[in-house]
Design a protein around this nucleic acid. Sequence first.
RNA 1: GCCGCCGUAGCUUAGUUGGCUGGAGCGGCCGGCUGUUAACCGGCAGGUCGCAGGUUCGAAUCCUGCCGGCGGCGCCA
Length: 430
Amino acid sequence: MAQQIEEILNDEFVGKKVELRGWIYRKRRVGKLIFIVLRDSTDIVQCVVEKRKIPEETFKLLDKVGVESSLVLKGTVRKEERAPTGYEVDVEEIAVVGPSYNFPISKDKSDEFLLDNRHLWVRSREMNAILKIRHTVFKALHEFFRDRGYYETQGPMFVTGAVEGGSTLFEVPYFGKKVYLTQSSQFYLETLIFSLEKVYTVAPSFRAEKSRTRRHLTEYWHAEAEAAWYHNDDMMRDEEDMIVHIIQRVLEERKKELKYLNRDIELLQNIEKPFERMRYEKLINFAQEHGVNIEYGDDLGADEETAITKHFNAPVFITHYPREIKPFYHRPDPDNPNVILCHDLLAPEGYGEIIGGGERIYKLEVLLQRMEEEGLNPEDYYWYVDLRKYGSVPHAGFGLGMDRFVWWIAGLSHIKYAIPYPRTIRRTKP
RNA sequence: GCCGCCGUAGCUUAGUUGGCUGGAGCGGCCGGCUGUUAACCGGCAGGUCGCAGGUUCGAAUCCUGCCGGCGGCGCCA
């Protein structure tokens, strides 16, 4: 039975025979010795091949093949301070499974080149660490929702109407008709709360925004939830519990990866509930006091978000936006109908918005009035309007950008590093 | 929709006030080396300077158009 590299890197394995399977990460030949740094999904370990211990042809082949060749080897573990991970394997048997010559990625690499070769770059230690963190984020998200009594469900990807602005829909030919790729599953989740009460989904969302920024993808992973009988505050409570739970899990399971990425772990460890809740109006004052050029009624731009979030060590909820700058479905505040019962969650360190959510309008007249204000035709949204006709209830929900979340947690410079195959305005390959 | 930047060998690049045969590192190939750390030493090969047109005695270098890419704003998650 073969071992994985991570498990043999300790004193218990010293003197023991192991079988390893992996890929050549680095290779150095020194006379009748070949040093092979082997990698597998778990870690790297240096293996020493002595010419006299293996067949002549095998040594020649090993000398010839390049990095990323796949190998199976047997050998004995030894403590070795000179080796990169503190232990070394003296090789007794070794076989090349799949040779690799002239692997395109070497030490010099540009951003563009690595994106063109993403299918090979995913093997890098850096991407390996990011992908593991991403895995834990997704896993912990599911844990949270299941523990909190949410049902997992799914909406369609082909849709006929916009949730957000109509200009950012991707059109798809559909048997002589036109449909669109979904921007959000929110409206479908709203229908499902009448059956399941609390629902969530993790699915791609597509936005044809011509955005060229470090925080935008055209296809991104969207975690969305809706809950019946929830008000804005109830939803924010679940969200902060969720964020804290996921961060906790990442700190438990992925410290090694965070360190590899030089993430400031202390910043994550210091995040505590409850998060600051700040009304939009107060935020504007706060921002103005800190020299940000913004007025009441402006939506927050990237510069403002950065300036504001740099003053906080934890995520901050911004609530009660003016109704004009948010979509029609948000419920106006009964105490002041000029503002809505909504919230955005801004991640610290300048990462900015990762969640948008709020309480939905549940009264028919209010919904119809808001649609009229926005120039929307209720017939196009007949099924959404219907929900307010047949036993409507107060409810709230949110959408979390999973890639943005990973981007922040891993402390990455650009969101394209947070997903295996980023789709941006210019990039659809590989 | 708006603003800015880049394109020279497989990769990373130097060279851009127009002027000698466009240099280098990595990688590749050949040879050497029993403790290397993206090893080192010697040698060799590798170029449509993104494409097209223009200016000029002369263009990688200047101009125009096109193609490809990157970053930022706005919008958003």
